[in-house]
């Protein structure tokens, strides 16, 4: 029981950065914009959060800096992909390559330094629930924030006018535009939200998960999150489930080693990537189903009046 509780708690921690970035990308894709630059925005969030925390001594400042960095990066993308109607694949790739380079450049002087990262804050009463209390209510504040973000996104998409407008922009921008919706503004906002969430996810890595900065510390999580959104059929509840599933896959090697399983670290480190491919296979083999769930205008630039 003790082991199970710890494994589940670690799963939630490992799944949290994925949840944060995937929720942002979910909103972005629902507006019809596919931003492949998640990895770049996360890395910028991670380095900005770390450097800001180190210099200011405040984790709150670090988190804010990470969100700002993520949004800033996403605006570069939005300018290319939304305003200039550039190919979204290419623009997203550019964002990842640029973010990887820029974060490594900015963080070069901070490798090897350490900060006091986020620590667990138990929520009174709730944390006393057996198993579940430790797993969900005795975590660091960013885990709680990710759960609030999840609830917010789910509610926004399903029960608010804004959510409806967002989905309209993603499904049929022409019709939405004809109804007076400023599609480009909606898409800018959605991209900005995605950027902020990716920045926050990066901050989770450099301020809570492993409170330090190393080059490329996201290790493909931004890409896994993109697969996660496909896996979730663009639905928030499935994003939550998927994030923890992938979280479990990424700590499986620690669990197996803890149980005395003898295997190479490198081989086990492949697991999350293999699981991602398997998930994609499972979810995509039926093209009709994929088409049914994908936001109709996903990946297509929109130019009003053309």
């Amino acid at each position: 029981m003790e082991l199970l509780t710890n494994v589940l708690a670690a799963t939630v921690v490992a799944g949290t950065p994925l949840l944060l970035v995937a929720l942002g990308e979910l909103i972005c894709e629902r507006s019809g914009v596919l931003n492949l630059g998640q990895e770049g925005m996360m890395l910028m969030g991670a380095v900005a959060g770390f450097v800001a925390t180190l210099t200011s001594g405040s984790l709150i400042v670090g988190v804010a800096a990470a969100i700002v960095a993520g949004i800033g990066m996403s605006m570069l993308f939005a300018f290319m992909a939304v305003t200039l109607a550039a190919n979204q694949y290419a623009a997203g790739l550019a964002l990842t390559i640029f973010g990887t380079g820029l974060s490594a450049f900015l963080g070069a002087g901070f490798v090897g330094q350490s900060i006091d990262g986020f620590t667990r804050v138990a929520i009174p009463l709730l944390s006393d629930i057996p198993v579940l209390g430790r797993v969900l209510f005795d975590q660091d504040p960013l885990v709680y924030l990710s759960l609030i973000a999840f609830a917010g996104v789910a509610f926004f998409l399903r029960h608010t006018r804004g959510g409806l407008l967002l989905r309209a922009a993603g499904e049929d921008p022409d019709a939405a535009n004809a109804n007076g919706l400023k599609v480009l503004v909606v898409r800018y906002l959605a991209v900005a939200f995605g950027g902020g969430m990716a920045g926050l996810a990066g901050a989770y890595l450099s301020l809570a998960y492993t409170p330090l900065w190393t080059e490329n510390m996201t290790a493909g999580r931004g890409w896994i999150a993109l697969a996660l959104v496909v896996f979730a059929s663009w639905r928030p509840e499935r994003v939550l489930l998927g994030a923890y599933l992938f979280g479990a896959a990424s700590i499986l090697h620690l669990v197996l080693q803890g149980l005395g399983w003898k295997s190479s670290t490198e081989l086990l480190a492949m697991l999350p990537y293999v699981v991602t491919i398997l998930m994609l296979v499972l979810l995509s083999w039926n093209p009709a189903r994929t088409r049914l769930n994908t936001p109709l205008s996903l990946g297509q630039p929109y130019r009003p009046g053309h």
Partner: peptide, 21 residues
């Protein structure tokens, strides 16, 4: 920092796509 290579490459691709518009 050696990362100036990656930064330069990223900038180049960014400007390229912008100019391509």
């Amino acid at each position: 920092p050696k990362a100036v290579t990656g930064l330069f490459q990223g900038l180049l691709l960014f400007y390229l796509l912008t100019c391509d518009a």
